[in-house]
Amino acid sequence: MTTLAPDQCNILLVDDMEENLVALEAVLGPLHQKLVRARSGEEALKAMLRQDFAVVLLDVVMPGMDGFETAATIKRLDQTKDVPIILVTGVNPEADYAYRGYSVGAADFLTKPVDPWMLRTKVGIFLDLYRKNQRLAAAAAEPGSGERLTEIAQQLARIELLLRDTPPPDPSALADRVAEVSRSVESLRGDGE
C-alpha cells in the first residue's frame, strides 16, 4: 500500500475510455488527492481490495461488467460497502438509470459533460466525510477511549432517569449531572485534537 500525505485520500476513477479518465483527472487535480485509474469494473474491484478509497467515480456504460453491476458488487463486499459511489453516464441516459443507480447503492448520479465545479464540490464533500470518519475511528481506537465513552453513556442514562421521574427532578441535581457530562465531553474533545 502506498503511504499518503496526512490529509490526502485515494479517489478511484473508473471508465473504459482514456479521454474520460484524462478529463476526470484534469477536473479533480486541484483537489491534490491520489487519483487511481481503472479501465473496467473488474480492475476497479481489484483496486478496491488493495487499498482504501474515499470515493469512487464510476462510468455506467462499460464493456463486460457495467457500472451498475460494479456498484452492486462494491456494496455487497464488507471491505468496500461503505465507500460512496458517484455514477457518471453519457449525455442521453436511459430514463431508469438514476433509479437503477440509487437502487444498487450509488450516493450520486451525474451526466456527462460533468460540470467541473459541481464534481469537485461533490467529491470534496465525500473527502471531508471520509477524513472525519478516519479521525473518529482513530479516536475510538485510542487506549481508554472506550472506558470514557462508557462513563459518558452511563452519565447520560442517569440524566435520562432523572428526567423520567414522575415528580419534577431536582434542578440542582440535574444541573450537576449535565455539568459532569459537559466536562467529560470537553475532556474527550481536548484529547482528540
Rank of each mutant, 00 (worst) to 15 (best):
T2H: 07
A5N: 07
P6L: 06
D7P: 01
N10E: 00
N10Y: 04
V14E: 04
N20C: 05
L21Q: 05
A23V: 11
L24H: 07
L28A: 03
P30L: 06
Q33F: 09
G41D: 00
E42G: 01
E43A: 11
E43W: 06
A44M: 04
L45T: 03
M48D: 05
M48R: 00
L49E: 11
R50L: 10
D52S: 15
D52M: 13
A54Q: 04
A54M: 03
L58W: 11
M62T: 02
D66A: 05
T70S: 00
T70Y: 07
A72S: 12
R76T: 07
L77W: 07
T80K: 04
T80E: 10
K81I: 09
V83W: 15
P84L: 10
I85Q: 12
I86A: 07
V88K: 07
V88G: 06
A95H: 12
D96P: 05
Y97D: 15
Y102G: 01
S103N: 12
S103D: 14
A106T: 03
D108F: 05
T111Y: 02
T111N: 13
P113K: 10
P113W: 04
V114I: 10
L119S: 03
R120S: 11
K122G: 05
L127D: 02
L129K: 14
L129C: 12
N133E: 13
R135E: 10
A138I: 04
P143I: 05
P143E: 13
S145V: 15
E147G: 06
R148D: 11
T150K: 15
A153W: 06
A153Y: 10
I159H: 04
E160I: 02
L161W: 10
L161Q: 15
L163T: 13
T166Y: 12
P167H: 02
S172R: 14
L174D: 00
A175D: 13
R177W: 10
R177F: 08
A179D: 06
V181N: 01
R183L: 06
E186Q: 08
S187K: 07
